[in-house]
Amino acid sequence: MKVEDFDFTLPEDLIAQTPLKERESSRMMVLDRNKESIQNEQFTKVVNYLEAGDCLVVNNTKVLPARLLGTKEETGATIELLLLHQKDGDTWEVLAKPAKKFKPGATVSFGDGMLQATCKEDLDQGGKIVEFEYNGIFLEVLDQLGEMPLPPYIKEKLEDRDRYQTVYAEEVGSAAAPTAGLHFTNNILDQLRDKGVQIAYITLHVGLGTFRPVQVETIESHDMHAEYYQLDESTAETLERTKANGGKVIAVGTTSIRTLETIMRDHHKFVATSGWTDIFIYPPYDFQAVDGLITNFHLPKSTLIMLVSAFASRELILDAYKEAVQQRYRFFSFGDAMLII
């Protein structure tokens, strides 16, 4: 299947540059796979589409302020590092920009020497292995010096970094937010609980794959970057009980769906486990874990639009995206939501 099959025309002014004033004020397109119908709603109505006995699965990863701007000690050149994941101790995998100016042995200083990074190894496509030196606690230093790693299509400065975190973010480790969860407020989550909907938490730390476009002509040729996930015993029991009782499992975001489908693929049931997944979901795909999906509107030709096209159908998704453009929905990270049932 060709990557071009997942292209669509998107006016640039529909790319949301800033979050809305209130999280839950987003719009929500509801796509019914069986009826092949589309409804336009407000996100606050999401409560109406879940029933008692259903389980909403959210990704509780927390975004690191992972973007660092520093100065190369040898030349004074400006170097940007984006932290991707911790390898061991103070050794991290990062993206460097410009990568050619940060070779093994070079050192970059941040915050007048408060933090230093020495390049240890070159990787593909601008990736580096670096070792950090600092005094104190690394996460506290990073919180003081780092910026939120907003995607390259967002040009506006983020005034409140908490708006690039979900209200349930807890497990530190992501290089990007699981953006479908940004719409939820504690009020909406409480309404769902009051209705009898279980809220279950998984973790997938969003990594390198989020920042790299598909650069091949055919989908089958694309290699997904691995990301770390974990699911605990309580969530596994909740999900097994939901399925056994005939409830629906509704995943919030493509990160949640990838985690759940990985576990079901490997174990044929929900179990407490952790590991690295490079699962790549595209049409046709037989979903085993998930009955519904809440997601945002994704980039043309991205692995994410391929995933949602596998969950619904390519034709239905592209029709929905065409209507979303006509209805002037907001796209991408700070954009509006889509519920697929």
Rank of each mutant, 00 (worst) to 15 (best):
V290R: 06
D7H: 15
Y168E: 13
A176V: 13
V252D: 05
I305N: 03
A99I: 02
I305K: 04
G209W: 12
G126C: 08
E121W: 01
I38A: 04
P65S: 04
E22I: 11
V206Y: 02
V216P: 07
F280A: 14
S256R: 11
G253Y: 00
T44N: 09
K101Y: 00
G53I: 09
E24W: 01
H205G: 10
L95S: 03
V271G: 05
P149W: 13
K120N: 07
G70H: 07
R212M: 13
F334V: 14
A312V: 05
T254Q: 11
E41L: 15
E156K: 15
T118A: 03
A226P: 14
I38H: 07
Y164G: 11
S26G: 14
D13P: 01
L260W: 03
T235K: 12
I281G: 05
Q288I: 01
S25M: 09
Q86C: 13
D336L: 09
L150K: 08
E12G: 10
A236H: 11
S256E: 09
F184M: 12
Q198S: 15
D5A: 14
A99M: 03
T277D: 04
F270P: 13
A310E: 03
V130A: 02
D319W: 01
T203E: 04
A77Q: 14
E121K: 15
E12W: 01
P283C: 11
M306E: 02
A236N: 08
P300Q: 04
E261H: 08
N59I: 10
Y134A: 09
G53F: 00
A177W: 08
V325I: 14
L304N: 04
Y153E: 12
S256L: 11
V46D: 02
K45Y: 04
C55M: 05
Q288E: 12
A16L: 06
H298Y: 01
P178Q: 11
D143M: 02
P213W: 08
I250N: 07
D5K: 15
T179D: 02
T277Y: 01
Q165N: 09
G105Y: 05
T254V: 08
M224V: 10
T262L: 08
D291K: 08
M114W: 00
T118P: 01
D90F: 01
G146W: 10
E74I: 13
I129N: 01
F8A: 10
P213N: 13
T78P: 01
N245D: 15
L182K: 09
K195Y: 05
T259Q: 11
D5C: 07
L84T: 12
I219L: 12
F8C: 09
L68H: 03
K248S: 13
I340A: 06
T254R: 12
V206I: 15
E73H: 02
V108D: 00
L95P: 03
T185H: 02
N34A: 13
D88Y: 00
P98D: 07
P149M: 13
G247N: 13
